[in-house]
Design a protein around this nucleic acid. Structure first.
Lengths: 153, 153
DNA sequence: TACACCTGATGACGTACGAAAATCTCGATG
DNA sequence: CATCGAGATTTTCGTACGTCATCAGGTGTA
């Protein structure tokens, strides 16, 4: 079994249960606890694994509205805009993109009123040339993390 | 409120470290281990916490390209399309939305060739009336989970 | 009544450390 | 040029120890 392979299997196992114990992982992958511990530390140091989080159901805690906001931005103002968006804690993802718009951001809000209010506030920025907001009707899947390929020997 | 202050604090603490021990959480929040255990079990049973995952840096494992794909879909074919998209494991998020397009999906790919290939394959579906793909130049933030409000006593 | 707490007992857990095994390096040899 | 093998390096492993999660039964409190 190659070195890379074990790492991929370890990551995949953790994607199944991010709080799994080192012992259960060791048993599942048929290596010693120490090996799991070493590889996991390495993966964390290399930055492959950036941390661990619970997967929250924001619906269940009152954030019922998700919106996809697309912006056309004055070229030199792009860093300012993206910084502003990132600092809005309810912005889940902020992307600089190619295409008709320069920025695509995804945010979560407690209700449509709160959403309108916040988006309106954002759009007062004179560097925003155009915008387009899509409200999510149904999140078929969201923030799914997929498993890594396992290479054969 | 369906969740109380301790629950919010507990969730926020786990957002900081999803593998934190119950003991360390108990110390941080100044309650007993038993209380942490009970509340955590409740949060999991209620579905507020859906599970735990490592946060992966997909860049570090060879998925360098992220794309935002927007689709206009023949009305009655929408479920088929979203199902197809969801079953593509590299699709991180799939949303049904209001606005110019009906579906917004975010996917990760190993390179632009792989991306083009997969997207082209998707677009052969005759129920897709129009599409628009934006390639992510820079992920300012991605899949951030924000902390819950703590209400004062 | 519903929470939060304490205690004690038990088996599981994470980590450090030295030993063992596997792998790599590289010059010598046929 | 391909092969060998001693030594160095890397990777894995088992053990031991202190910590941890869980359960049960009982106390305090709003």
């Amino acid at each position: 079994m190659t070195y890379e392979n074990l790492d991929a299997k370890l990551v995949n196992a953790l994607l199944g249960d991010g709080r799994a114990s080192l012992r259960s992982l060791a048993e599942e992958l048929d290596v010693s606890v120490t090996t799991i511990s070493n590889h996991l530390s390495d993966l964390e140091e290399e930055g492959v694994i950036e941390g661990y989080t619970p997967r929250l159901d924001y619906d269940a805690v009152g954030y019922d509205v998700t919106a996809v906001i697309q912006l056309q931005v004055e070229g030199n103002a792009l860093p300012d805009i993206t910084d502003t968006l990132r600092d809005h804690r309810q912005m889940i993802s902020v992307y600089e993109v190619t295409g008709d718009y320069d920025v695509i951001a995804i945010g979560k809000f407690k209700d449509t009123d709160g959403m309108n209010e916040q988006i309106k506030a954002l759009l007062t920025d004179p560097d925003i040339k155009a915008s387009n907001t899509s409200v999510v009707l149904n999140a078929v899947s969201e923030n799914e993390q997929f498993e890594l390929d396992i290479e054969d020997a």
